[in-house]
Computed example of a mutant assay.
Amino acid sequence: MNNAPISTHNKALGYVLWIFGFTGAHRFYFGKPVTGVIWFLTGGLFLIGWIVDLFLIPSMDRQADARFAQGPYEYSVAWILLTFLGIFGIHRFYQGKWLTGLLYLLTGGGFLIGVIYDFCTLNDQLDELNKGA
């Protein structure tokens, strides 16, 4: 019997986000918001951390798969929606959070404060929704 965790995150998407990794995008995606903020503020830890992360993505993927619950809400879909349409709240609508989705839509993602908050907490939000489903 295989006891490996079911995949919740997509390694290929992690590598795509790594291209923008000096912004911390891949670290946020894999549930590492503290280092994501550090990468964002330091340009991928002065590009050195960004290069090292190229080799760390498989382990970050495994850690995310083990940490976050699988369920009806796909992490990759939510992250793509947040990354490209976050100011419109589309990721919030996807999660069934209609009130905050409308608020984001009317205020440009809560004047970007809400979008930044979601970059740091989206994995935990989805994990909670998936565990409750």
Results as ranks from 00 to 15, higher is better:
89 G>P: 00
65 D>A: 13
29 Y>H: 12
94 Y>K: 07
106 L>E: 01
21 G>S: 07
123 N>R: 06
20 F>P: 07
21 G>C: 08
15 Y>D: 07
105 L>T: 03
2 N>T: 10
83 T>G: 05
38 I>W: 08
8 T>R: 07
43 G>F: 03
27 R>S: 03
58 P>W: 14
24 G>Y: 00
129 L>V: 10
133 A>E: 08
131 K>R: 11
100 T>Y: 00
89 G>M: 01
34 V>C: 03
125 Q>H: 09
115 V>Y: 00
113 I>W: 00
82 L>C: 06
41 L>W: 12
38 I>S: 01
5 P>S: 12
13 L>G: 09
3 N>C: 08
32 K>P: 07
96 G>Y: 14
71 G>Y: 07
122 L>G: 03
79 W>R: 04
23 T>S: 05
113 I>S: 01
63 Q>C: 06
112 L>K: 09
115 V>L: 14
103 L>F: 11
96 G>F: 14
124 D>I: 08
59 S>V: 06
97 K>W: 00
101 G>R: 01
10 N>L: 00
96 G>D: 11
57 I>A: 01
127 D>L: 03
43 G>P: 11
60 M>I: 03
55 F>H: 14
1 M>P: 02
6 I>R: 04
20 F>C: 06
53 D>S: 05
19 I>M: 11
35 T>A: 05
118 D>I: 00
49 G>P: 02
61 D>L: 02
124 D>N: 10
82 L>M: 12
74 E>V: 13
32 K>A: 12
72 P>V: 15
82 L>N: 06
78 A>H: 09
105 L>S: 03
75 Y>N: 06
65 D>H: 10
33 P>T: 09
104 Y>Q: 01
115 V>T: 06
30 F>Y: 15
4 A>L: 14
68 F>R: 03
40 F>A: 10
128 E>Y: 10
1 M>A: 12
87 I>S: 10
65 D>N: 14
48 I>K: 13
32 K>D: 05
42 T>N: 05
84 F>K: 10
63 Q>K: 07
85 L>V: 07
132 G>I: 13
9 H>R: 15
21 G>L: 07
96 G>Q: 14
68 F>V: 05
122 L>M: 09
14 G>L: 07
98 W>G: 04
60 M>E: 09
94 Y>A: 02
67 R>C: 15
35 T>M: 14
87 I>K: 12
6 I>D: 04
